[in-house]
């Protein structure tokens, strides 16, 4: 007995030793930078970028309040908060649109014969073969005033002036939707593929209408996939940087751009770090709700 226990202990130790490189890697390249950002957010900005090593909560105060240049009095400023709210709305809107388009797409894929399903998955993942920046610029070429859509509309005589699409909220939404749609489709597809379609038949046999089959059987049973898809779309679109910058023309800021701005021309690293922390807190909150929801689902399902 004792020998077996010793062996086990040895085995455990060896296993821990073998995972060490991975753990070190994660610590060095994921945890450490985060700690640096966290530390920066509690410091004072240096004049030419970087930080002064001095503790300060100024960055977080600056998120909600504006300091008067002359008497240092604080007045509430909703400017940054509005950008956060806007970004949040963009994130939600992108998620909803992706869900509305992605779910039927995933359903279509999952109901194809098994041989053709992999081709569909391949088609969905093709956009990943090129860079996000390249794809965003491609969208620009399609929707700009001299772009593909407007050229066609003009040559058909449907409009006499180009329809302005680029540098609008619509453009940002379109870009976000296009960039993140696969993240919605793939997890939903994965759970739909596992769905036992005999259950769909059974509910149909028990007088459920098509809509009821969807809401009472298919959606509850594929909920983990739907939730994962929503999260995978919401998180990156909430923190999106390239898409709003290129398609929104920098006029409609989102958090990602705001953060980039602080580290760039504004030279306020602590404020940028504080924004990053606040953004992360939001995302963690979303994750937390997702995990709780899933855990609840397991206990009664």
């Amino acid at each position: 007995m004792a020998e077996i226990k010793d062996m086990q202990r040895l085995d455990d130790a060896r296993r821990r030793f073998l995972t060490l490189p991975a753990v070190l890697f994660i610590l060095a390249f994921a945890a450490l930078p985060l700690l640096v950002v966290l530390a920066y957010s509690f410091m004072k900005p240096a004049t030419y970028g970087g930080v002064e090593w001095q503790f300060s909560t100024e960055a977080y105060v600056g998120f909600l309040f504006q300091k008067d240049i002359f008497d240092d009095s604080l007045t509430f400023s909703s400017e940054y908060l509005l950008i956060f709210a806007r970004t949040f709305l963009f994130g939600i809107a992108t998620t909803v649109i992706c869900l509305l388009i992605g779910f039927p797409t995933a359903y279509h894929m999952a109901t194809r014969p098994p041989q053709t399903r992999n081709w569909w998955v391949l088609l969905i993942t093709i956009p990943f073969w090129s860079n996000l920046l390249v794809r965003t610029i491609a969208v620009m070429f399609i929707i700009r005033d001299e772009g593909l859509i407007n050229t066609i509309l003009l040559s058909l005589g449907l409009v006499d002036q180009p329809v302005t699409m680029i540098f609008t909220d619509f453009a940002i939404l379109l870009g976000l939707f296009y960039s993140f749609l696969p993240f919605m489709i793939l997890p939903i597809y994965a759970s739909l593929e596992k769905l036992d379609f005999r259950l769909v038949e059974a509910s149909y046999d028990l007088y459920a209408s098509r809509f009821q089959v969807l809401t009472r059987i298919i959606i509850p049973l594929t909920w983990p996939g739907i939730a994962t898809g929503c999260l995978l779309v919401f998180i990156p679109s909430f923190g999106a940087y390239v898409t709003p910058l290129l398609l929104g023309g920098g006029r409609h800021l989102m958090i990602g751009d705001l953060i980039a701005l602080q580290f760039g021309s504004s030279r306020n690293w602590p404020l940028g770090s504080a924004f990053s922390m606040i953004l992360m807190a939001f995302v963690m909150l979303a994750l937390f709700f997702q995990i709780r929801k899933n855990a609840g689902g397991v206990s009664h399902g």
Binding site: D196, R198, L199, E201, A202, S203, L221, G301
Partner: peptide, 10 residues
Amino acid sequence: VFQNYALFPH
């Protein structure tokens, strides 16, 4: 009554 019962697991 289906062969595999097809009960709704949720």
